[in-house]
Design a protein around this nucleic acid. Structure first.
Length: 663
RNA sequence: GGCGGGAUAGCUCAGUUGGCUAGAGCACAUGGUUCAUACCCAUGGUGUCGAGGGUUCAAAUCCCCCUCCCGCUACCA
């Protein structure tokens, strides 16, 4: 019988820098599923890769004194090396700078344009300068800016737009009739309630403010929006062709069975991507799973303090399979998982060293001590054996149930329950007592045989999650990995086989204090400087895997007179408080000359009201007053904003009095 | 502000359509054991099941209200 195809993908990693353990987790998770599916008999194709375009990369490369291509070559290689280090069994590593990919992206874009799903906007009267926003005709209210109600101006920049709304009803229908399409299910509501049901807005799918992207071949000066580019990887990696001459691979593996992605990019995968596919006339992926994140709980380790945890450092300290075990087992299905060095050490000691490693070690030691390593099934069966056998046989089904629901952590727990049951069996049967009585030799043989057999089954099931450890155990027991069809039978280990004479420690117990000292030596925490930080609003660490960035808009030329219309002045913040019922707004009383202006700003996530007081900042003082969250705001505090959306207030380079003019 | 999800043992959580003395793992304590990596096995406890009210023979579970947390989204002049 021919194998059924199974196509699984991860998100492609954004090549803006080295991925940390939270990003790496995704590939390991995908790998465990891919390996499991292969084991149970699927013809698996597992694709991952790197997403290499966009303005952010253009800038990073520039800062790095290299060309974008040189930069992404380097980072992509680094990412691939980490994926390899983690022992991930991908079949295809795609790069969005690969020629065949870029070519297809151009074709896809062109096809959508030619069939009218993508259109070029003319922008006359559709750019609202104060709002710095572009609007499509459908968004305008009476021809005016839907945000501020002011006249919109013709803009210099043209762009292409994708008519998402055309396919919205079809997508809603699809989501409703395919309850497993979006996982976990709670995310489905978010997509429906926030985007689909209120009505989709057309998506701007080209950029002309920077160059590092796939050029729109029929309109030089525009590059394809990075998401259109990135999402296409799932089909271009299979040899999809927009002109209809796709490879055999594509016909075999598409539609994908599972897109595994971070929960932060679910919107792109459950709205934009399906609509793209509908427009192309291709079937939709069967399932998109937005997994949670691994986060650092106490803030002791955070990027800003330069001590993020990286996969390669962890592997160096603990070994590949310990890291795989940790990330797979600690990550729940729906909530974020927590990672810290202490937790890793604790798990390695209690589960890997104690439960599993010690079990294998003590079993082999007894076999050597009592029978020179020869394992014989003497068939001296007692009723206590039954429960062990039942657990061993049942584990395969339990694991399967978990894996079908993508509950990888639970599947691992089942496998370790098998190992724990083995430990209990040893206590129940007391081999050391049997060894003292020559008449019990058959019984002792049988007990050891049952143990070895059980461990072989466990090791087989462990392979998708900890391939190296699985192989090591089987080797020490001189056994072959079982086939899936053999797992319902107990007693296939060849009687008379000999286990290794020198059992190797699988996982050494870790001295927590010594290890933590070593970690501190290698990755000194920059510590304590921020003692007073307590109440400071904290920004949560997010993985960098594919956070969409907003490219800076290139604005049209203005005259000095136009600039002169803005009244910029230094202002001193006299007092400041949070705006009630608002998550981001602070309301400041700002002194400028003799006046005190009340200004509302969306900076609560970056500044506390207390620390605002006394600051001298740059203010636009002649901005038309407006109400924000019901509070009057009579100006604007100027801020710089980086790619992550972090804000910093502007101040003068030397101390200047409140009211000082800026020109 | 809108939509959604949570609040259960010291910690992380499970509790299916309301039903027997509310569970698991970790941690802790005691006992056992010695084949093994100071390991393994057994036993144990406190829970106002976030607060209050209601429906019911019966509520952690259903309804109302309150408090707090989280996610997405809007706003962030």
């Amino acid at each position: 019988m021919p194998k059924k195809p199974y196509y699984i993908t991860t998100a492609i990693a954004y090549t803006s820098g080295k991925p940390h353990i939270g990003n790496t987790y995704e590939v390991v998770l995908a790998d465990s599923i891919a390996r499991y599916k292969r084991f149970v008999g699927y013809d698996v194709r597992f694709q991952t890769g790197t997403d290499e375009h966009g303005q952010k990369i253009e800038i990073k490369a520039f800062e790095n004194l290299s060309t974008p291509k040189e930069f992404v070559d380097e980072v992509s290689t680094e990412i691939k090396n980490i994926w390899d280090l983690m022992n991930t069994s991908y079949d295809k590593f795609i790069r969005t700078t690969d020629e065949y990919h870029e070519k297809q992206v151009q074709k896809i874009f062109k096809k959508l344009y030619e069939q009218g799903d993508i259109y070029k906007s003319e922008y006359e009267g559709m750019y609202c300068t104060p709002c710095e926003s572009f609007f499509t005709p459908s968004q305008l209210v009476d021809g005016k800016c839907p945000d501020c109600g002011r006249e919109c101006q013709p803009a210099k920049e043209e762009a292409y737009f994708f008519k998402l709304s055309k396919y919205a009803d079809k997508l809603i229908e699809h989501i409703n009739t395919h309850p497993d399409f979006i996982q976990p299910e709670s995310r489905k509501n978010e997509m429906m309630n926030n985007f689909l049901l209120p009505g989709l807005q057309d998506l701007c799918v080209s950029r002309s403010s920077f160059k590092w992207g796939v050029p729109v071949d029929f309109d030089p000066g525009h590059v394809v929006y990075v998401w259109i580019d990135a999402l296409s990887n799932y089909i271009t990696g299979l040899g999809y062709d927009a002109d209809g001459v796709s490879d055999e691979l594509y016909r075999r593996y598409w539609p994908a069975d599972l897109h595994l992605i971070g929960k932060d990019i679910l919107r792109f995968h459950t709205i934009y991507w399906p609509i793209m596919l509908m427009a192309l006339g291709e079937p939709l992926p069967k399932q998109v799973f937005g997994h949670p994140w691994l986060i650092q709980s106490d803030g002791k380790m955070s990027k800003s303090r330069g001590n993020v945890i990286y996969a390669d450092d962890m592997v160096d300290l603990f070994g590949v399979d310990a890291v795989r075990y940790f990330v797979l087992h600690e990550m729940p299905f729906e909530n974020d998982g927590v990672i810290s060095w202490e937790l890793v050490i604790e798990r390695v000691n209690s589960e890997l060293a104690n439960t599993l490693g010690n079990l294998v070690n003590r079993t082999i030691s007894m076999a050597n001590k009592y029978f020179d390593g020869v394992i014989t099934n003497a068939h001296d069966v007692q009723s206590v054996d039954d429960e062990l056998k039942k657990v061993v046989i049942d584990t395969r089904l339990k694991v399967n149930t978990c894996m079908d629901k993508l509950k990888v952590a639970d599947a691992m727990t089942e496998i370790f329950a098998l190992f724990k049951r083995c430990n209990k069996y040893i206590d129940e049967t007391m081999p050391w007592a049997l060894a003292k009585d020559p008449d019990q030799s058959d019984r002792l043989n049988t007990v050891l045989y049952n143990l070895v057999e059980s461990i072989v089954v466990g090791a087989t099931l462990l392979e998708p999650f900890m391939p190296e450890t699985s192989a090591k155990i089987l080797k020490q027991l001189n056994a072959e990995k079982r086939r899936v069809t053999e797992l319902s039978t107990f007693g296939l280990y060849p009687s008379g086989n000999k286990v290794t004479a020198e059992p190797e420690i699988l996982f050494a117990r870790i001295d927590a204090n010594a290890m933590l000292d070593e970690i501190e030596r290698r990755f000194p925490s920059k510590v304590v400087e921020e003692v007073v930080e307590e109440e400071k609003p904290k920004k949560k660490e997010r993985p960098e895997l594919k956070i969409p960035t907003v490219e800076a808009v290139v604005k049209g030329e203005i005259t000095i007179e136009e600039f002169g219309k803005m009244q910029l002045q230094m202002g001193e913040i006299l007092s400041c408080e949070a705006v009630k019922d608002s998550k981001k707004l602070l309301c400041s009383q700002v002194q400028v000359n003799g006046r005190v202006l009340q200004i509302v700003s969306g900076i609560k996530n970056y500044y506390s009201p207390e620390e605002m007081v006394g600051k001298k900042v740059v203010v636009i003082t002649n901005l038309k007053p407006t109400k924000l969250a019901g509070v009057l705001s009579e100006g604007m505090l100027l801020c710089a904003e980086d790619f992550e959306g972090n804000l910093a207030l502007l101040t003068a380079e030397k101390d200047m009095p409140a009211g000082a003019m800026i020109s």
